[in-house]
Design a protein around this nucleic acid. Structure first.
Lengths: 215, 215, 215, 215
DNA sequence: GTATAACCGAGACGGTACGTCTCGTCTTGGC
DNA sequence: GCCAAGACGAGACGTACCGTCTCGGTTATAC
């Protein structure tokens, strides 16, 4: 959620044409244009035609390499994440800290996530991709596999470490457990079902770790 | 989530024209056409023109009373819920049971919710509305206020009863607590981030009630 | 050739849509734009899109009523002819004179035809239509039927009168005879196979009437 | 009209590149592809890309040696004529016979011309070239100079012989005279303004030689 | 015998126009 | 004045070609 990791090997998705001859200049211009337009006019008013015009590129150059504006945006967004990761230092950039205190570590990373969710560079594209993914299952699965799951895996890892340290019960399934605090945050942000604050995510962590029932 | 309640008083949203002369016949035909088309061809390929044609109605009759296909679908879906509720008996239809055992009651209602989520009559429209709501904030708020919040309020009520019965700690905020099991389910369903089963929701309830940390 | 006659009854060619609701304003604007563009940039660079833009009209309004730019231009040109005819007085406007001297009358009308062929308002569109008609047989037949044949019929009539007056042999087929002077003129003009002058058309009439062989 | 003569010296039209290194294999393949495509799908649907693909040739190889598909087709058609001429024997192949009877000789050659006009190998390309020439004046002049005039010159020669023999009046201009029978045929064929038969061309010759007026 | 220049096949590229589709507005005639 | 019908201006869709521009590869002289 708060992460995108290393140089994901740039999957060769739509490779009918000769990818070695591909213009990297155009590819970057298209990414930039797509992200800029989604930020400026919103996803629905962003058109393939508009992206092409803004990028100074023929429409066919877009259709040659992608099948829809959603695919373009997804790749542009992935690329943005990779760039950000690379800019920030080694690949380990966004990993969840392990200070030995699982509660504190989760609170830290969730607070960072909240901040990122409202970073204007990220908000519009990720909302748009999430929305498109709900209705276009193929895209949705791609979105989940490439963006969501890698981030969630970090929580799985951190929770396993906590289990090893005796801070989380051994019989807990970490893949489900992480949803107790990640999903509520995701829903509030996506659907505006409630305010999203650091206090809120702290509470989520507390509730999730210690449960609702009296001890 | 698993509920839609009473005869929501048919909000008079777009009141320029004279509502008293409105053709109920056309209104119903539009609802039916919208739901049918979303089910058959999917939301993106459902068009206002298509709805009008299928309903045997002029396009203006749609634009006179609604501002977008999303609004039409939202109202059609609300109406569908009302009909279902009315068909099923009294208004209390979908309320959460209170057998005195909060864990059992939550498991029961979440299992029912899972079944409903995959009811073909409901899935396509509610996915579509959720998706549209992510990107169109105004619609999103309407969607949440009219469909989501009423359902969530039932959980709030049930959790408060559990607090009164000493099954949930008193200092817990029920509005946040309910998200521990509702949001993960919502996310798995919406984003296909994992399998959705009765076993899964049972686990969510157990984790949420008793926490992840050892006691 | 030198003529376009009366209010040809405006054939209802492509009548799927409801012609009674048709916007006359748009129709006229399209005619004007088509003729202007063909005159200004030439037929090949005239595009449906350009006509629509110039006419302040949606492209669909063109495609609703015509099947190609050639059809638009043909109708626009026919309309231009009708207007010209109407402006000039009664319907009899362009008929071939009958002074009793067939040679003089033909020379008169062919000289007028030459002048018209090089009238800039007429030249570009009629060249373009003729060219398109060579290759698109359907259009070609329409072009001939609506523009060419009505004009040629005037020659037939005049030649028959000449036969009655004993100035042309009775066994001559007027439909073929007229081609002796009309076709050479048409070919020179269309294909630039030679200079087109009043002297030239006078010569054609003389040759055609008296033949090449010695008497 | 019914003729194409000798090894027209392969005009060095577009001589930027080094013609000595030119691939004759490609040139022939391009000719073949162009003629085949025009025959199969018609001139407007014949594209440079299509010709290149069919010829197994890069597009640049076409653009290197020609400036338009019309130029390609013109050259291909000229080449076809040369080949036909060469196949048929000496260069004199299509010359107009001189039996001493000008009427008979003209009838003979016009009948042959009619047959050739409807030879499927020739019809599509020559129509297309004629059409393109109407609108593209530069091409039109090339078409006339390379294809039409050489044929017409044969008529001039034959008519001069007839004048010497006293079968045609001395003061007749042969270049105009030949149009009396050639142009009507051309127009009927090109514009479908009437049936084209041997009887028709015979009639043309009779009318042209002896005139329409009584003797 | 190698260098070096060119044509060549291939096809990506920035563009333009195509003909279709849908939008949201407007207009007409019937009830 | 609502309604069915649907024409209208607008403009994006995805496709097809345009003519230009690399990119190896293959000749084919010129050193």
């Amino acid at each position: 959620m708060a992460t995108t990791r290393k140089p994901v090997p740039t999957a060769p998705e739509r490779p009918q044409p000769d990818a070695t001859r591909r213009s990297q200049r155009s590819r970057r211009a298209i990414y930039d244009a797509a992200l800029a337009l989604v930020g400026e006019v919103g996803y629905p008013k962003t058109t393939v035609e508009g992206i092409a015009a803004r990028a100074g590129v023929g429409k066919q150059t877009i259709y040659r390499w992608w099948s829809s504006k959603a695919e373009v945006l997804l790749e542009a967004f992935l690329d943005l994440g990779e760039q950000a990761a690379r800019a920030q230092g080694q690949g380990a950039s966004y990993a969840i800290p392990d200070t030995g205190d699982i509660a504190a570590d989760l609170k830290t990373v969730l607070r960072a996530t909240v901040d990122e969710l409202y970073d204007p560079k990220f908000e519009a594209p990720s909302r748009a991709l999430a929305a498109e993914g709900l209705v276009d299952e193929q895209l949705g699965r791609e979105f989940v596999a490439k963006l969501l799951e890698p981030s969630l895996q970090l929580y799985v890892d951190r929770l396993r470490a906590a289990q090893a340290a005796g801070q989380v019960r051994a019989e807990i399934d970490p893949r489900i457990a992480l949803e107790l605090f990640v999903s509520p945050l995701a829903q509030r942000w996506l659907q505006h079902t409630g305010p999203v604050s650091h206090a809120y995510t702290d509470t989520l962590v507390d509730y999730a770790l210690h449960g609702l029932a009296p001890r």
